[in-house]
Design a protein around this nucleic acid. Structure first.
Length: 382
DNA sequence: AAAGCGCACAACCGCACGATA
DNA sequence: TTATCGTGCGGTTGTGCGCTT
């Protein structure tokens, strides 16, 4: 059974708002409020607009104290941190940036920040219309399904065993880039350089650091967002943005190459010794939050805290499903789900001297590494 | 000069969810 | 309990502008 449309699409005006329409809407709402009914509002004031359109226009452009224009570095930093933590929950991110709207942040992320941090250019829409998704192509269709249509609609779209959303992949890349993981683990051929790169990479602090510099965060995040924010390490050196940007820029090409080439070539996320069971993702309770806050590096909540319902949202589960489906049958691990076609992978090998750093990362990462950690091996594996 | 292209931003679309009758 | 409605959200598309070729 379909839903009735929210308005008569034949009789509503679409497209850009005129100053007259803006003035009407603004004047009415400032005097009467929305009346709790956006659908009825346009009729009341004689606008040939859909109620949803009115709401969007008010929330994004007409309501007081809306900030437009350039984002500050601090804002960029918060967006980046929260994106890594909670994914594309723009409304939650927007709640941390007074005056910014979710739409604004979403656009800013998609058009500027993502490119700045991940160092990749989004394919043009023409290109997107004419060619397969670059990641799909680069990964033999196994790494992620992204471009238009694949992941349309609800954010709760379940990941297929072999598909990873663009958002999830971006978060892995971001996290890895910020952690300097590629320097530490991406290529085992130069351990000294890798260790140096890892040492130079920005570390991730516990929640208080962010709270101290971003007061609105406190008490305003939904439960799961708080949990996730606690669980994921915010960039520690809030002062080190230039370094962050620089390392992001420097690493961009190389990282992209490594990720793509390793993925494309049968890539070796290397399973840790022992089984790879899929732990249940769960909330980080307030009590465990207090517990983790006392640690120098806030540990991953998936370590030992799997209880309860909820979770870290579709992106986390999606990531885990992907990893699980790909490597669940390895190393004597559980073979649920019938993913028996997964080819055997080489034995686990940590690069010399990297195991300590890797386990640190694995313990503090919530991308599915908590069950023992996974490693992106730079050397292609066929 | 003009066509092609990329980018940024505004707006739309469809779905999920909660409230309510 | 179920159908309907309104709202909020995230993903996608449309469009105008500026730069490049």
């Amino acid at each position: 059974m379909g839903r009735a449309p929210c308005c008569d699409k034949a009789s509503v005006k679409k497209g850009p708002w005129s100053p007259v329409e803006d003035a009407k809407l603004k004047a009415y709402i400032e005097e009467h409020g929305t009346g709790g009914n956006w659908i009825a509002l346009p009729q009341k004031i004689g606008l040939k607009r859909c109620g949803k359109s009115c709401r969007l226009r008010w929330l994004n452009y007409l309501r007081p104290n809306i900030k437009h224009g350039d984002f500050t570095e601090e804002e960029e930093h918060i967006i980046c941190s929260l994106y890594i933590s909670i994914g594309s929950r723009w409304s939650i991110i927007a709640a941390q940036l007074p005056g910014r709207t979710d739409n604004d942040i979403k656009n800013y992320w998609n058009t500027k920040l993502k490119k700045k941090l991940l160092g990749k250019r989004a394919p043009s829409r023409r290109a997107r219309a004419n060619q397969a998704d670059p990641y799909l192509a680069a990964t033999d269709g196994n790494m992620c399904g992204t471009s238009g249509g694949v992941n349309t609609g609800s954010s709760a779209t379940a990941a297929t065993p072999q598909a990873l959303s663009a958002s999830a992949l971006e978060r892995i890349q971001l996290h890895m880039r910020l952690q300097g993981l590629y320097g530490a683990f991406g290529c085992a051929t130069d351990n000294a350089a890798a260790a140096a790169a890892a040492a130079a990479a920005p570390q991730w602090p516990k929640l208080e650091t962010l709270l101290q510099t971003n007061k609105p965060l406190q008490g305003s995040l939904p439960t799961d967002a708080v949990a996730t924010t606690v669980s994921v390490q915010q960039p520690q050196r809030l002062v080190d943005r230039s370094g962050l940007a620089a390392s992001a820029g420097e690493a961009a090409g190389e990282t992209e190459h490594q990720l793509n080439s390793s993925s494309a070539a049968g890539a070796t996320y290397m399973a840790p010794p022992g089984s790879f069971e899929r732990p249940k993702l769960g909330f980080h309770s307030p009590s465990s939050e207090a517990e983790t806050a006392s640690a120098d590096m806030a540990p991953c909540p998936m370590v030992g805290v799997y209880g309860g319902g909820g979770g870290f949202g579709p992106h986390h589960d999606e990531l885990y499903d992907f990893l699980y489906s790909k490597y669940g049958s390895l190393g004597g691990g559980v073979a649920q789900g019938g993913h028996t076609h997964i080819p055997p992978l080489p034995e686990l090998q940590y690069p010399d001297g990297a195991d300590e750093k890797f386990s640190t990362w694995a313990a503090s990462c919530d991308y599915g590494a908590a069950a023992g950690g996974h490693q992106l091996q730079g050397e292609p594996h066929q």
